[in-house]
Amino acid sequence: MTGLLDYVQGESFLHRLNPLTKLVLSFALCAAVFITDSHLIIIGILAAVLAFSAAAGTVSRSLRILSSLGKLSILLFIVQILFVRDGKVLLHLPFGLVITDSGVLFSLLFVLRFMTATLPLALMLAVTRISDLANVLVKSLHMPYSYAFALTTAIRFIPLFAEEMSGIMETQTARGVEFDTKNFFKKVRLLLPLCVPLLISSVRKTEGGAISAELRGFNLRKRNCGFREYPLRVADVLAVLFGVAVILTVSVF
């Protein structure tokens, strides 16, 4: 099973785009989500990203990401809705809390932004090899290789750490620690000691990675070391224009 941020093998038009184009497009879609205040436009962008995912063959993964974000979104929605006091009061709650129409709209906008802004970046990672991303950052954006390496390593380590945490939780459940409890606060209290093995394992992995990178001549690498070329094609220009058009549209409306 692949993780939610792993590369998914494929030959779709999104896979074939220049990695830089995909990066620009995903940032443009994210920016559009934050520029607009319209719920409908954000839903439209979400639908467009899901359509792109379907075209790239990663729609089930995008839906899994949405489902995972959904749980956190419910919590964020509840917190937001209770703290916005402007607008017409719809409901009075105990302890002086109120639910207002502005609160509902703002909370909904907040949650929609949160969910929609995450998807383009996840989709970009699904259709772009991490090594291609690092190479294009170095070659086209002239980013120092050590910075590009740090960035891509951080992305690559997210699923590794998630897998490690899942393994740690499995081991602890097998020794009787009640992670299968339905009490949220108890679960959080039980999770805290597990940061220790996760931290130890992270440091060990990072140290191992650093040593092996050194042994392979990490410091000798220069901007022109990569043999792969990333030319801009017509499809890339069209994709960038699409991103610019989205930004302009949401800025106007």
Partner: peptide, 18 residues
């Protein structure tokens, strides 16, 4: 179930947390 069944995994580091 863990009250009756002890399980030792290959990787001890996932168990140690103290």
């Amino acid at each position: 179930i863990a009250r009756d069944v002890g399980f030792l995994f290959q990787n001890p580091d996932r168990m140690l947390c103290q």
